[in-house]
Write a protein that binds this DNA or RNA. Structure first.
Lengths: 338, 338
DNA sequence: TTGAAAGCGGTACCAA
DNA sequence: TTGGTACCGCTTTCAA
């Protein structure tokens, strides 16, 4: 028993064993109702005995279909994306899709390669969280694809596919308004994130609106971008606090940036939530247990994943439906860091 | 342009367009050296023009090979596993494998189904982090598989496949020794984790050894298991602190449990690292930014993923190599919670 | 170095 | 309700 390199048991083997044709056996694996119960049982019995394993790959090849979908995210190490992925999985499990995972680390060349890989693997659709440097070529390329694509988190211009993301403008605005009105700040820094990206620009817009509404001027020296990581936050806040006239509050591109900033500020001797206020963006699980617990804007990562998966599923089953654009509403979660 | 449901461009189309045979074109997509440079260029040119996309699925079917591998983890929401997954990805990208991801949520029936799905999708191998309730049937089943399996994190008895994990006994021991010798505790609780699982038993053994070595008795009332989550930690610590003679220090099954315990203890009015000491296990990124920063045992999640991927790759290329068992050495990371 | 034809493990289609 | 056969897109094998 268990002497490995045996030939795979095929449907034909099963059919022969059960004394039926391959076509009939095929109907049975596909749960077709138009086959006699007796025959079905006989064949199922044979499958059991022979240890038959369905070859979905061969089936998909012949039927020109696919049961796998590609999910391309930026970084699994970032809880925001792992939460999103959780949502995607959770939803696709229902539909019986399998997920092919790819991570870009925000590099365009990785993204290009991943899209190719996904296509070569005949995925039925792609959930794409585009890298911040996504170029016109990316857009062009995605537009050319014969399979459905749902964009997540970051929207690309001139792209006509479904999209699910957050109203970042509103999210940034509510965060900054909180700092202005409830916390009475007038010099608020905006740190982190890559200034090229649409997600940054939208937060910037929210930041601007909140200032405009309160008749507050914006000091460009208080705006320092960086990579959206802990390290980035650390660097950016260090830079911004070295100003002759430093800010009294800090709005961060995301929670990761905020954590980095927190570490740096604490080292400088600031007491967070007292000497200086800080608010993040995303509400990743760490925000709750960090010190001090981080005030942040929830961007509903898991929910985003769920919606994206749903959109893709709909698009696959009804290719000609009208294009959808889902914008989740952000929510300010007040904790102790501000 | 971009009128969707066009037939897929095949190698035959390319061959015709370039005026060569399909076999020749096939050699070219596989980078065979035995084809004239002129022919190659002509064909590559045609591919470009026609927008050819290689069908890896069909290729794998015909050549009885596979370029995807399955990775089955417990929960993407748990940073330990997302870090592990990060390692796996990072490594497989080098070898050109694509990862099919599955999550069990520690449920046996999910695990069974995922293994089936992976097989049906013709994965070339599986990295399996088994659920804690993995039964003899799981073992039996995995033993029967014709494809390589590498076990991660949790070892299963009587299973002859490669394994990569941590020396949990040593890890628990060093943690508890720290509490006994450096922090002078004599009543140390062990909370969290499922008492059935091998990972729990090994930590328990380390806990026992540290006590034995210090001539300390173990009070069974201080040992409370739970699910390995934040909620579990919260419940378990609540139970253990209600003892008439509560512990003065707490060793947690993992960091998630520790965070839950932290929240509960703080609510009870304890000041961590002062009134009571706590140490976790895993050293997930959150441990560093939690309050207070958590003393914990690093279990090198990402490294585990890297090693597992390597093991699987080796096994796939050399099926008859001797079985390997990699045990990473734990490391105590001292922070402020103890 | 290139080409013709069979086959991987299924499904589609049509006839019986 | 069942069976026969072509075929999905590629690789393999062997001959030219």
């Amino acid at each position: 028993m268990s002497n490995k390199p045996q030939r795979r048991v095929t449907l034909l083997d099963v059919a022969n064993h059960a004394g039926v044709s391959r076509a009939t056996a095929s109907l049975i694996v596909r749960n077709s109702p138009k086959v006699a119960d007796k025959t079905r049982e006989k064949v199922l019995q044979s499958m059991e005995e022979l240890g038959y394993v369905y070859d979905r790959v061969a089936a998909n090849l012949r039927s020109q279909s696919s049961t796998t979908i590609g999910t391309i995210i930026t970084d699994i190490g970032n809880t925001f994306f792992s939460q999103l992925l959780l949502g995607v999985h959770q939803e696709f499990e229902k539909y019986g899709y399998t997920v092919l995972l790819g991570t870009t680390f925000d590099l365009l060349k990785n993204q290009d390669k991943l899209i190719s890989t996904m296509l070569e693997n005949r995925v039925g659709g792609i959930i794409l969280c585009p890298v911040s440097a996504s170029s016109d070529e990316t857009v062009e390329r995605v537009n050319q694809l014969d399979i459905p694509v749902v964009l997540g988190v970051r929207e690309l211009p001139n792209l006509t596919c479904d999209y699910v993301g957050l109203d970042y403008v509103a999210g940034a605005r509510v965060a900054v308004e909180h700092l202005i009105h409830e916390k009475k700040h007038e010099r608020i820094a905006f740190i982190g994130g890559i200034a090229d990206s649409s997600t940054w620009k939208e937060r910037m817009e929210g930041y601007r609106l909140a200032h405009a509404e309160a008749n507050l001027d914006i000091d460009p020296a208080l705006i320092v971008d960086s990579s959206p990581t802990r390290e980035g936050g650390l660097e950016a806040v260090t830079k911004v606090m070295q100003q002759p006239n430093p800010p009294t509050a800090i709005f961060c591109f995301n929670d990761l940036n905020a954590f980095g900033a927190t570490i740096a500020l604490r080292k400088m001797g600031y007491q967070l939530g007292k000497d200086i206020d800080i608010v993040g963006f995303d509400n990743i699980p760490e925000a709750e247990i960090s010190y001090p617990p981080l005030t942040t804007v929830s961007s509903f990562a898991q929910q985003t994943g769920v919606e994206a998966a749903n959109l893709l599923h709909q698009r696959i089953s009804k290719p000609n439906n009208e294009r959808q654009r889902i914008l989740l509403e952000p929510e300010l979660v007040k904790r102790e860091s501000s």
